[in-house]
Nucleic acid binder design. Structure first.
Lengths: 202, 202
DNA sequence: TGACGGTAACTTACCCTTGGGTCACTTTAC
DNA sequence: GTAAAGTGACCCAAGGGTAAGTTACCGTCA
């Protein structure tokens, strides 16, 4: 092999370190938002210093984009597979929740990156975040359309509102889940099933 | 009168200016979060300069606290009156929504201050925000308890999760509402009634 | 085998812009 | 002339970003 493998020097190989930094970045960005997060703090979490972070990711935006893409791609993939499988409209919410919980069981802050309000209004990040959100919202709108149509509601604004609320529900559940580290994905799914059954008869 | 009334000089009296600044601050903090908001931008919105803002509110935290207390107090008051009036558990959500929409029709960003994740983790602001949130969450927990109990669900964690989701639903609806300036409080309430009726039979 | 050079991982010390915060001063109504 | 409303110009810390150097592993060639 011409390059890579065991490594170069004292620490660890770049790939491994990058993963560490993206994980730490996701947590910090998810916790404090883009504006509130500090690069030196992210580096400190991993036990390295700021310049290494910059050498690997170029800028705060670069690191954020790496975190965002990882989270967005995993999320979109999981939801797409679930939605593609099909099913009754009022069964989809629980299935999607189950997929999300399973995907992010050990990476619970990732979801928040997609909905971070503190990113600059213009630029690469805004575009990338909007793109990921658009893809995800498309699924939400699809699900909302199926659900509302099955109940005889067809106002496009109603559909959009329901889709928006749905993403907010996921947001809240994940936020609550973050505060309960002992609850695993299966327990979360069971809880949601119980609640939805009790409240809506779904 | 020993002071106040018509004024002193060219602009407008302090009280009036303070209200303007709190309104502008609420919008900017609500839009960009505490960390992302800029004091000079808030002053600029009102047409004054930063030193005046500091003369009146002392610091960024001081302004934020003024905005937070105004929003929190109005919100708590409105919700408390609605909850005190009582009613069937599955009628409360719509009543509370109606109260919130009416209260914040012309101040839609205010709600977000209570749930701003970019405030520093410790200090006056964190304490005040936690306090307002605690009061509001108490209402949410109360409503969730009544609702879940009426359906035979009693797990305390379920109740907490539902309460958390409820606040997230309000968050989402207001966020959607902000994007629809033409929709007034009555229209929002009617929309929510229609959707809840269609989806849950409430 | 062991000196040596190359390279990757990593750091110390710095620069510079942004933005919170302040001071001394000016303008205007009474 | 006094007091309130308001400003221009400044200070300073925090944090994004960079330059230049240091450490340790590796291959390799006498």
């Amino acid at each position: 092999m011409t390059e890579s493998r065991p490594v170069g020097t004292k620490g660890m190989p770049r790939e491994e370190r990058e993963v560490q930094l993206v994980v730490a970045g996701t947590e910090e960005f998810g916790r404090a938002g883009y504006a509130g997060a500090s690069m030196v703090e992210i580096a400190r979490r991993v036990g390295v210093t700021k310049p290494l972070l910059y050498q690997y990711f170029g800028s705060k935006d670069g690191l954020y984009l790496a975190c965002l893409h990882r989270a967005g791609d995993r999320l979109t993939e999981g939801v797409a597979m679930t939605m593609a499988a099909g099913g009754a409209p009022d069964q989809m919410p629980l299935k999607v929740l189950s997929a999300i919980f399973t995907t992010f069981d050990h990476d619970r802050y990732a979801w928040r990156l997609l909905r971070d309000a503190t990113v600059p209004a213009t630029g690469d990040i805004a575009a990338a975040a909007a793109d990921h959100r658009r893809r995800l919202d498309a699924f939400a709108v699809l699900g909302a359309t199926q659900l509302l149509t099955s109940r005889g509601l067809a106002d496009p604004a109603d559909i959009e509102a329901v889709a928006r609320v749905w993403t907010g529900v996921v947001d809240s559940l994940i936020s609550w889940w973050i505060d309960r580290p002992d609850e695993d994905a299966a327990a979360m799914t069971a809880r949601c099933a119980r609640i939805m059954g009790g409240l809506f008869g779904w």
